[in-house]
Design a protein around this nucleic acid. Sequence first.
RNA 1: GGAGGGAUGGCCGAGCGGUCGAAGGCGGUUGUCUUGAAAACAACUGUGGGCGCAAGCUCACCGGGGGUUCGAAUCCCUCUCCCUCCGCCA
Length: 424
Amino acid sequence: MLDINLIRTQPELVKQAVRDRQNPELIDVIDQALALDGKRREALREVETLKAQRNTVSKEIGRMKDAAEREAKIVEQRTVNERIAALDAELRQVEAELEAAVSALPNLPDPRTPVGATEDENVVLRTIGEPRAFDFTPQPHWDLGPRLGILDFERGTKLAGSRFYVLTGAGARLQRALIAWMLDLHIRQGYTEAYLPFMVKGDIVYAAGQLPKFRDNLYRDAEEDYWMVPTAEIPLTGLHKDEILDGASLPRNYTAYTPCFRREKIAAGRDVRGIKRGHQFDKVEMYVYCKPEDSDAALEAMREHAEATLAGLGLTYRVKQLCTADIGFGARMTYDLEVWAPGCNEWLEVSSVSNVGDFQARRGNIRFRREAGAKPELVHTLNGSGLGLPRTLIAVLENNQQADGSIVVPDVLLPWMGGITRLG
RNA sequence: GGAGGGAUGGCCGAGCGGUCGAAGGCGGUUGUCUUGAAAACAACUGUGGGCGCAAGCUCACCGGGGGUUCGAAUCCCUCUCCCUCCGCCA
């Protein structure tokens, strides 16, 4: 969430930001917020004056001895209270509308985020590695997997419908190895592992910025206020909600494995083949809470940590910087990592690393104190995947395939493979 | 799921519906004393909002929300969480 003070003092800056993000319709929302903010402050001034008066009068009444005089004062105060009640009701209404308006506004892009009209203006910064040259036609994973008996689409569909699949045997084991290896890698990079609830309360989803905007993309319990996490970023943001952290404890780096649940209400025919996009997928996430002045450096560090996973697996990937049209709602600056999948013949997004600034911190009321007695300040938060599992699995399967259809297990995963060096 | 008991400031713990933003203690900060430290003593020690250049003034907050009242930490309703016992369960 943006600071209402910023919107009030620099409305043009905020308007330019939504224009850059290709959300010109939000200009109206900004104007609406400004109007509501004015109304709020006006009503607040009046009601607070009346309440100060009421507090004084009530104390006087408490001290009064003369019954008649006392009664007269009480009657007089009743009419003032009616006005207070009316103003309080108005204020509640205005504040709810203001909150709704401001919470609909996306974060300000970092000045270094390139301005672009569509995702085509994302910038490929560099490519690491060369797409592997094959002396045979590389197969897509949706052919490789079933042939090897490690990937079962039919039974996934039987169990849960379209966009679900089952991994069995060495396939399931390979994914588990990837998860364990990534977690251990991030721990070595300075992150603390966390095991988190996979369902969280609505206010936690809100603090992370997914509600109300992305309501339609989330699964939720039909009877209770439980929301299935679409990413570990949600519980990791909520972890320190409403806390004042000790400045000396920053940065706090977390890594967590969670499944992710998404409705993926996209066109029915798109991305249906294979395991690229499902309603349930696994992910290892990185998350950092830090001081404002440290978040720029933390973003670069996190990008490097994510890159280290791809490099460790020996995969070819490229680093993209997203433009204003494509960065996420809460993000100021984002790097995407895309891995080359020779079977699908495309670059797959496996990681997105973002500096969110104080956007989630303001929504979640997450602060820190530089030293004892200092005023609390909002922290900055960053999140990044390290990595999304299905697409990483796709890349491993497709890149490591041999002419005979077998797949060589990457060296770093061998400790978890129980002696399996090759699938098939 | 059933029956009870709780929730107060960083922590512990008081609090007849009226001068309570809240006693007392612990912890913390600063000062006095001391060569230094400890002890002792003294002062200070929550968060958010509004007005103001500032000093300061003011509003709200005693788990969340709503209500009664001139006035609520204190009374009523409701929700959440925690504890004890029973049942059930991985």
